[in-house]
Amino acid sequence: MSLIVKICGLSEPETLDAALDAGADMVGFVFFPPSPRHLSLEAARDLGRRVKDRAGKVALTVDADDATIANIVETLRPDWLQLHGRESVARIRDLKQQFGLPVMKAIPVESRDDLAAVAGYAAVADRILFDARAPKDATRPGGLGVPFDWRILEDLKLGKPFFLSGGLNAGNLAQAINIARPQGIDVSSGVERAPGVKDANMIRAFIGAARGAEASLHTATANAG
């Protein structure tokens, strides 16, 4: 299975095009007003049309109500919902049934104890995304540019693919992939020159680093076998 690369928090045509041209598998759009990456529905419509079928479109929300999600789904026509709040297992089940879309559930991680609740979510969500736990005084749960100890995920058996997020950038990506062995990676602040402002060159460098790390891991695995 090829490594899935997701660029999240895109908000401008130029950087969206950079991600698509560089081969991103998924592109994420944030619908959460406290975030500097928050999109209006009008902006999301325009960006969504620009994607066409070149990558999977992911709508990120945080504890959003049904009406909000319905408006996002109608406007963006996403391929995935990414839930980054305190949504329960039952809530995920309800949303999947209501909207007929696969769900990626973000799990904040700081220690191995945070993995205790993962099994319940993994039984319902289509993908699990591990992100660094936000500080107590943070105004949003992700996109803070902080990594966690990737060794927490070593030898993790979920029974389904998981994504790694939190403080990833072109410089530390290979190490993160080698330790955690995720099936997908998700970056936002690691390809920004300022909060909420994506950089096309950083996006290209990140995706290039991801493909390079993937190839090196495959070579190492083959040699070990």
Rank of each mutant, 00 (worst) to 15 (best):
V73T: 07
L173I: 10
I92R: 00
P108K: 02
T15S: 14
D126N: 12
D131Y: 04
A19L: 10
G145Y: 10
A90R: 12
S2G: 05
L168E: 01
R77C: 11
T15Q: 14
S165Q: 04
L115S: 02
E154Q: 13
A220K: 09
A215S: 11
T15G: 06
A119N: 10
A59P: 01
R204T: 05
P182G: 11
M104V: 14
G166P: 02
L115A: 02
T75Q: 02
E87P: 01
E74K: 13
M104K: 03
W150Y: 10
R193H: 15
A106K: 05
M26Y: 14
L81A: 00
R151N: 14
K157R: 14
K105Y: 08
A117K: 11
S111A: 13
A125N: 02
P161R: 01
R204K: 15
W80V: 04
L81M: 03
G190K: 06
A70H: 05
L60V: 14
G142M: 07
H38F: 05
K52S: 13
R45C: 09
I72H: 00
E192W: 08
D114Q: 04
Q175V: 08
N71W: 02
A215M: 08
F206P: 00
G190R: 03
L153Q: 09
T75E: 05
I207G: 01
A134N: 08
R50I: 07
C8D: 04
